[in-house]
């Protein structure tokens, strides 16, 4: 009978989890007409002049984003948690979390407005930095921090709310004991609260790292909005898309997808086996 309960889920898991992965594996090691290709597809995509720049773009973006995420989320969660006025703490969490509703294309579109000095609500700020046109704001060297800001704006609030919850779970006795021993708020934060948050911070880091390697919608929309000042092969996923739909080279696309998939799988496997979050599994 148990098999009846899991039947539909198993079918979906095979069809949209396992089979596509195996099919991508097959394509990545074969040629267009089905012959065995060895590692040719991989050497081809890695040797592509667009590949290394795309890796560099994604890596830089991840660097900015993860550092901002880890430092600021922990910091803001600690502060929000330290505020004893209830309605204030609750309103702050709500304000931080609400942008999470604008994911994907919607948040990118919103930020296009914000970054366009002619319409922007913060055009003064943009002019202060010497930007007077949209094109100046989105020159390619600015993009990693720009994408990091967009991702932070959208995603940070949810994590702040979660860290806040984790902070609430720390026993009052521990904090009280530390306070009686003369610890200051800052000492409590650094020596007790942060170490106890570590598990959640690493969870956030790994999930965000895995998701960040998949960068697609941000550069895709920006490339459209900038009349291709931002190239349409800016990120690895975009490059895979170009291989599949512009060059009709599904084998090359599969090779890139597989590289990205291996990274994501490795990260999640490390986390499942060593992260300690899923101990009962």
């Amino acid at each position: 009978m148990s098999y009846g309960f899991i039947a539909l889920y198993t079918v979906l898991a095979v069809a949209f989890g396992i089979l596509p992965a195996i099919y991508a594996l097959f394509l990545a090691f074969t040629t267009g007409d089905g012959g065995f290709a060895g590692i040719d597809n991989f050497t081809k995509v890695i040797g592509d002049f667009r590949f290394l720049p795309a890796v560099e773009h994604v890596a830089l973006y991840l660097l900015f984003w993860l550092v901002a995420l880890v430092v600021l989320v922990a910091f803001l969660a600690l502060i929000v948690h330290a505020i004893s006025v209830r309605w204030l703490s609750r309103s702050l969490r709500f304000i931080f979390y609400l942008p999470g509703a604008l994911a994907g294309a919607s948040s990118v579109l919103l930020w296009l407005f914000v970054l366009d000095p002619t319409a922007s609500p913060v055009s003064g700020l943009l002019h202060l930095f010497g930007f007077s046109s949209f094109v100046q704001v989105i020159v390619p060297t600015h993009l990693p921090p720009v994408f990091a800001i967009i991702a932070f704006w959208t995603g940070a609030g949810g994590w702040i709310v979660i860290m806040y919850g984790a902070l609430n779970n720390i026993s009052h006795d521990v904090i009280e004991a530390a306070r009686i021993d003369g610890a200051t708020t800052v000492q409590i934060a650094l020596r007790i609260q942060l170490p106890l948050l570590r598990k959640w911070i690493s969870y956030m880091g790994i999930m965000s790292l895995a998701a960040g390697t998949q960068l697609f919608v941000e550069p895709q929309l920006l490339s459209q909005a900038s009349n291709a000042i931002v190239p349409n092969d800016y990120s690895l996923n975009q490059l895979a898309y170009q291989y599949a739909f512009q060059q009709n080279d599904f084998n090359g696309a599969a090779a890139i997808s597989l590289l990205l998939l291996v990274i994501a799988l490795a990260l999640s496997a490390v986390f499942v086996t060593r992260g300690g979050l899923f101990e009962r599994g």
Binding site: G17, A24, Q214
Partner: peptide, 21 residues
Amino acid sequence: VLTLIVMLIPNTALVLPIFLE
């Protein structure tokens, strides 16, 4: 275990393979 691992993979990672399939 399969559920846990696939759950943590970003949902864009399998899109192109699913398209091909």
